[in-house]
């Protein structure tokens, strides 16, 4: 099964604020971009376990810093709220940090059922206008992604 753990900051997200500021002040998106939010996504592939809830609890305890972060978990599908265009950005080159997270879970915490960990950023772009998806693609390619290491996809909302 795939456990999707979405994590976002409770405190102001300086990185999202910088992206919004750059789009508005430097890249000509005034009147187009209303807001930018960011989540990090960890997609954790695990063998089926008898008590998934307790595994999820263990994972969130280890991977979420509740002092500053909120989170949501879904198994299988990725559930995102409407109103924005979510752009998922991940590395296509080897992701050292994802490997470290997996090592930590398997070796230090003994969670032998974990098979892989994938990491991504989800940029939630709140866009005004007719064709938000093509605006989102433009923003991804102009700012959010360096194609020499990153890839992106626009997540379709259900």
């Amino acid at each position: 099964m795939i456990i999707n753990l979405r994590v976002w900051l409770k405190i102001p997200d300086a990185e999202a604020a910088t992206v919004k500021n750059t789009l508005l002040r430097r890249m000509g998106y005034q009147g187009i971009i209303r807001d930018v939010r960011r989540e990090r996504l960890l997609s954790i592939e695990s063998d089926d376990v008898s008590d998934p809830d307790s595994l999820i609890k263990q994972l969130t305890r280890e991977l979420v810093n509740e002092n500053k972060e909120n989170f949501a978990v879904s198994v299988g599908s990725l559930e995102l709220s409407n109103g924005c265009v979510p752009v998922k950005v991940s590395l296509w080159i080897e992701d050292g940090e994802a490997i470290s997270i997996k090592d930590r879970l398997v070796k230090r915490l003994g969670l032998k059922m974990i098979r892989s960990v994938q990491r991504a950023n989800i940029w939630k772009l709140y866009i005004d206008g007719d064709d938000p998806e093509s605006v989102a693609r433009r923003i991804a390619e102009e700012l959010l992604v360096n194609p020499n290491k990153d890839r992106y996809e626009i997540i379709k909302l259900g």
């Binding site: 405190i11 300086a14 810093n65 509740e66 002092n67 500053k68």
Partner: peptide, 14 residues
């Protein structure tokens, strides 16, 4: 410990 986490500050070197 969980309850205490609210007491930690968030720094910003930038």
């Amino acid at each position: 410990e969980e309850a205490n986490r609210g007491a930690v500050q968030i720094p910003d070197p930038f």
